Amino acid sequence: MAVFDLTAPGVQTQTYQDKEGNLVTIGCEYTPYVQTRGVSKPLVKGGITRVWLTGPLSCEFTMDISPSGKITEAYDEAYTAIGVTVTSDNLTYSSTRATYKLTFQTPVYPILGSSGYLRAAISGDNLILSETIYGLNNFS
């Protein structure tokens, strides 16, 4: 699990090395909506957040966050696979979390296959990203 600050616009990342030596990065880019018209001090009112996981199997999606801190839409999901074949993908969301699930086959287990997800959850001013594709969840 990686925790990022939704009050800090811009890119935030954490990187880890898996047991095969691959560098895996999880991150987000938060672009707030800023209201400047009719106010003496700019107000941050929600925003757009792109989240991603990179490695041999990379994925990403974008979500809109309302001024009240709720997810109002998740879209633009995409993946890139090196050494695996993705057989299905699905992006779902609720007001508090969005999950991009991938089902894939590896050369080692072509019949059974595997699945994993990249998940973004909002908790107060924090964006909590977790994943089960690599099973790391101890980013630093």
Score class of each variant (00 low, 15 high):
D64Q: 13
P56W: 05
V108C: 01
Y117Q: 09
N90L: 13
T85C: 08
E60C: 13
R50G: 04
V84D: 07
T54F: 03
E73A: 15
T36W: 01
G113R: 08
P42S: 09
T54A: 02
D76Y: 09
I122Q: 02
R37D: 12
F61T: 04
W52T: 01
Y100H: 12
K41L: 14
S95K: 12
K41C: 06
G83L: 10
V51R: 04
P110I: 08
V51F: 05
A74F: 07
Y100T: 01
L57M: 06
A78F: 07
T85A: 14
T80W: 10
T85Q: 14
T92V: 14
T36H: 01
I48L: 13
T85R: 14
T87A: 12
F104W: 15
G113F: 10
Y100V: 02
G55T: 05
T31A: 15
K101L: 14
K45R: 15
I122M: 04
S40L: 12
G46F: 03
I48G: 00
Y75W: 03
P110Q: 08
A81Y: 09
S95N: 08
T87R: 11
S40Y: 05
N90E: 15
R119S: 10
I82V: 13
P110D: 09
T36Y: 03
I71E: 04
K101R: 15
S88E: 13
T49C: 15
L57R: 02
S66D: 09
I65D: 01
E73H: 12
L118R: 07
G47F: 05
T103G: 00
G69T: 05
V51K: 03
T85I: 11
T96F: 10
I111A: 13
T92R: 12
A121Q: 13
L53R: 06
I65E: 02
N90P: 01
Q35P: 00
S40G: 00
T99M: 10
L43R: 13
T62I: 09
T54Q: 03
I71S: 03
P56D: 14
T96Y: 10
L112M: 11
I111T: 13
N90Q: 14
P67L: 06
I82C: 06
S58I: 08
A81N: 07
T99C: 11
G83E: 09
A78S: 13
Y33H: 12
W52Q: 05
Y93T: 04
G124W: 05
S58D: 06
F104G: 00
E73I: 00
G124P: 01
P32F: 09
Y117L: 00
T80K: 14
L43Q: 15
I82M: 11
L53P: 01
S66A: 12
I48W: 01
T36Q: 10
R37F: 10
M63W: 06
F61Y: 15
S66V: 03
T80D: 15
G124S: 06
K45Y: 00
G55L: 07
S114M: 15
Q35W: 00
Y100L: 06
P107V: 11
A98R: 04
T106G: 13
V39Y: 01
Y33D: 10
G55F: 07
I48Q: 13
L57G: 02
S114C: 08
K101F: 04
E73T: 01
E77S: 14
I48E: 13
I82L: 12
Y93H: 15
L118K: 08
